[in-house]
């Protein structure tokens, strides 16, 4: 297991609370909340170690499209970058619904 922390500058309104996913094989859980400041903070707990750069790239691409200031907590059980992107998208949709 590895714990990763990232911080990104944000520009838009704060995200609302959302929860999606399950910590099951090849899947992940995302807890999204409004950020305590104007930045987006991401904490990742992942079962697969050594993929910090991949996570950073996936998150940067996602936050480029959705720059809401959010506090994001991810519990990952070996999801592929595609699944991660999908779940992040779902979390945003839920936070807007």
């Amino acid at each position: 297991m590895e714990i990763l922390n990232f911080q990104f500058p944000s520009s838009k309104v704060k995200a609302r609370r959302a929860h999606v996913g399950v910590v099951g094989s090849g899947d992940l859980e995302i807890l999204m909340e409004p950020s305590i400041d104007d930045a987006t903070h991401v904490t990742i707990q992942t079962s697969v170690t050594g993929f910090g750069d991949t996570w950073k790239a996936v998150l940067e691409r996602f936050l480029g499209q959705h720059p809401e200031a959010a506090s994001i907590e991810i519990n990952d059980f070996g999801a592929t970058p595609g699944t991660v992107a999908l779940r992040l998208q779902q979390a945003v949709e839920e936070s807007q619904s």
Partner: peptide, 10 residues
């Protein structure tokens, strides 16, 4: 679980 390096669920 974290004491054993296993990812938790909220």
């Amino acid at each position: 679980l974290p004491m054993q390096g296993i990812v938790t669920q909220s």
